[in-house]
């Protein structure tokens, strides 16, 4: 199974970070992977996206053409990527921020009010991780242990408290599915 993942929304929502968590988790599992950010002058507030591919064989193009996993954190991103999702693919929508429903009927859609949940939990910047928790649980693209190990790689030691907050956010996303 090759996971072709697109994570999209506004700059500043931690989209690239979410992708990195998946990438490091895949590295921990000794799998093949690529992580490709959009880049440009809009560091904050503009549209941003990140392509992650996790595979058991060498990755061809790092550019995802037809994602089988799509995570969207704003309406423009849903508008842009909905059509490209592979039939049978999974779409994860932050329903606090995306004003419409997915129109496709040949995909599985999960709506999570991630930004509202994050606010309620007192971790308003971690809505991305709530969605990511749901993705990990629903797709099994990487294992829980690998996610923990990967997170430890990218959350520096001096911000150890952030590790717990990230894990709590991911857990909330998983629990929401249940």
């Amino acid at each position: 199974m090759e996971y072709q993942i697109v994570i999209a929304g506004f700059g500043g929502q931690g989209l690239l970070f979410s992708g990195k968590v998946l990438a490091y988790a895949a590295l921990m599992e000794q799998r093949e992977l690529s992580w490709l950010p959009s880049y440009g002058p809009e560091m904050r507030g503009g549209t941003a996206n990140c392509n992650v591919i996790i595979s058991d064989s060498p990755v061809g193009s790092p550019i995802v053409q037809n994602p089988n996993v799509l995570m969207v954190m704003n309406t423009p991103s849903l508008d842009k990527y909905e059509k490209s999702v592979a039939p049978g693919g999974k779409i994860f929508v932050d329903s606090s921020l995306v004003s419409r429903k997915v129109e496709r009927t040949d995909v599985e859609v999960t709506y999570i009010p991630a930004t509202k949940m994050a606010g309620d939990m007192g971790i308003p910047t971690l809505a991305n991780m709530i969605l990511l928790g749901a993705i990990v649980k629903a797709t099994g693209c990487v294992g829980d242990e690998a996610v923990l190990a990967g997170l430890k790689k990218i959350v520096s030691a001096k911000h150890a408290d952030l590790l717990d907050a990230n894990l709590a956010a991911m857990q909330a996303g998983k629990d929401y599915l249940a």
């Binding site: 990438a23 690529s34 992580w35 490709l36 880049y39 990755v59 790092p62 550019i63």
Partner: peptide, 10 residues
Amino acid sequence: DGTMGQMMEP
């Protein structure tokens, strides 16, 4: 190219 520069891989 920009893709090679910006992408991460093992």
